[in-house]
């Protein structure tokens, strides 16, 4: 491929997406460089999840372009599986596989999709369990873990594929307040390790701390964006100001 590190890892241009007659994204553009962490905030229903899900082709696109490492996502010849090997995703509802233990959840994709050696995959999975601070929970089923623990398994499961970019869709929104922090610190460590991250979040303090760039969406368009300090202290658009006023 012609893509190299100095070009955006994810490059979105004039993205339009409709569900039937409902236009949810009305021309969104953004660039994310390798190692960058961006946060998307905005009111509920503004299209944040839809935007994130277009990047790994869980949603298809009507118009515009998404390049992931130079690969066009809006292309009917796209090999979705190849794309998804490079793009990890963590969901609000964790979506662990309930019939598999924590360790098996992490090992499944490298074994089945990447066809890696079982011994190596298990070693990697145990490292990841340690990385998200869940030693001792390897053999527990998701139903036996708290929300925060499940979400950290979900992060480890996604990392096991060794992705180049990670998508997080409101991953702490379903958690009890006391377990939010353990998940946020796992993400923070990941960001500090240089992982390219795109997060949808309502945790403003967290966004301000870890993001390189913040995007504010409302009704399918990016209303305003900028580095965290400028964004939070010096918002220009009345819709941003109103939203920040409500949430802070």
């Amino acid at each position: 491929m012609t893509w190299s590190d100095d070009q955006p890892m994810v490059s979105i241009k004039d993205l339009h997406k409709s569900f039937g007659a409902l236009e949810v994204l009305k021309g969104v553009s953004m660039d994310v460089m390798k190692g960058e962490v961006i946060c998307i905030i905005g009111p509920s229903g503004s299209g944040k999840s839809t935007l994130i899900r277009c990047i790994n082709a869980l949603n298809d696109i009507q118009q515009g372009s998404i390049l992931v490492e130079g690969r066009e996502v809006n292309d009917h010849k796209l090999d979705k599986l190849e794309l998804r090997k490079k793009v990890g995703m963590v969901f609000q509802q964790y979506n662990l596989f309930p019939h598999k233990t924590a360790l098996e959840n992490i090992m499944m994709a490298p074994l089945l999709v990447l066809k890696q050696e079982k011994a190596e995959v298990e070693k990697l999975a145990r490292q990841l369990i340690k990385k998200v601070r869940l030693e001792g929970k390897e053999d527990n089923y998701p139903g036996e873990l708290s929300g925060g623990q499940q979400q950290r398994v979900a992060i480890a499961r996604s990392l096991a594929m060794n992705p180049d970019v990670m998508l997080f869709d409101e991953v702490t929104a379903a958690l009890d307040p006391e377990t939010v922090n353990e998940v946020l610190s796992a993400i923070k460590e990941l960001a500090q390790d240089g992982m390219t991250c795109m997060l949808v979040t309502h945790e403003m303090a967290f966004a301000r701390e870890i993001a390189d760039h913040i995007y504010f969406t409302d009704r399918g368009v990016i209303v305003e964006h900028g580095p965290p300090d400028t964004f939070f202290d010096d918002a220009k658009d009345p819709r941003t100001i109103e939203f920040l006023g409500q949430i802070l």
């Binding site: 190849e82 990890g88 995703m89 969901f91 996604s158």
Partner: peptide
């Protein structure tokens, strides 16, 4: 089954057949 099971498996690059046989049907 909640649709999240499909989405999670698909986002891990499982093929459709793998999603069905490994994730959906066992449950």
């Amino acid at each position: 089954l909640p649709s999240g099971q499909w989405e999670a498996a698909e986002s891990l690059a499982f093929s459709r057949t793998q999603v069905l046989w490994r994730i959906i049907l066992p449950q």
